[in-house]
């Protein structure tokens, strides 16, 4: 207990902000160009409940193939839809197919990763297993913000373009696609590149691997001034709750 108490004395200034580092746990990852295999997963409204089920222990003992979403940890992703009741892999599920086992780019439908936030359950592990790019019609609101933090690029394209990409992917098994954020282009050997647009702020953040905290830091004095003024204007917000 004594040791625990002394910790609290060592409270220091803002160095913690700079100490954030670039580790996968906390985000702030660079993304410029990514080359890899793509997998089509053109369902709409795929929820985080489907991507990372709460009861991932249900997958205990399932035979885990290696590499990408087929890696031993990756095998828990989509557990409720990728295995049969007896634990055997469903052949019709994309990541169980040889051609897509090591995919690092997912081509998805509308409102992908809607639902719970599951930052630690969805965005981070999938990034750690290697999924760096999602190309889709639209994305769940929370997923979009999370993705940036983990150096994961989300590209929004119209349905017709997505179908063209899927067509290319299905006829080019084993051929790598290149997603270039600097030039905002998706390059697929044998066809014209597809341009895309990104929010300039998000693009800058990914290209430079900026963490939110680095973006906030210059504004900390202003934040503190706002807070002090607010404490005068809305004192009730800061009341301790004992009626004072």
């Amino acid at each position: 207990m004594g040791a625990k108490r002394s910790r609290r004395r060592r409270v220091a200034g803002w160095k913690g902000v700079r100490n954030m580092g670039q580790n996968i746990e906390r985000g702030g990852h660079r993304f410029a160009v990514h080359e890899g295999l793509a997998a089509p997963f053109m369902f709409d409204n795929v929820s985080t409940d489907v991507i990372a089920p709460a009861l991932t222990n249900l997958t205990d003992g399932l035979d885990a193939p290696r590499g990408g979403l087929g890696s031993s940890r990756g095998a828990t992703a989509f557990a409720n839809v990728r295995y049969n009741a007896d634990g055997s892999p469903r052949r019709d599920f994309v990541f169980n197919q040889e051609a897509y086992r090591t995919a690092s780019i997912m081509v998805v439908g509308k409102n992908y990763a809607t639902g719970s936030s599951r930052v630690t359950g969805v965005t981070r592990p999938l990034a750690a297993w290697g999924v760096r790019v999602y190309i889709g019609e639209s994305f769940g609101p929370i997923f979009l913000t999370n993705a940036v933090q983990y150096g994961v690029l989300t590209v929004e394209l119209p349905r017709e373009t997505l179908h063209e990409i899927v067509e290319w992917v299905e006829s080019h098994h084993g051929v790598r696609m290149k997603v270039d954020l600097e030039r905002q282009l998706i390059e697929m050997p044998g066809r014209d590149p597809i341009p895309f647009e990104t929010d300039p702020r998000v693009r800058n953040k990914l290209l430079n691997g900026l963490h939110d905290l680095e973006e906030i830091e210059p504004h900390l004095p202003a934040a503190q001034a706002t807070r002090e003024r607010d404490k005068q204007e809305r004192p009730w917000v800061y009341q301790p709750g004992d009626g004072r």
Binding site: I142, D199, L213, I216
Partner: peptide, 19 residues
Amino acid sequence: SWGGENSENILRTGTVIRR
């Protein structure tokens, strides 16, 4: 209000970036 926010950033700064 909204969810999906990283409370560590708020612990450190009391602020949040939002579009």
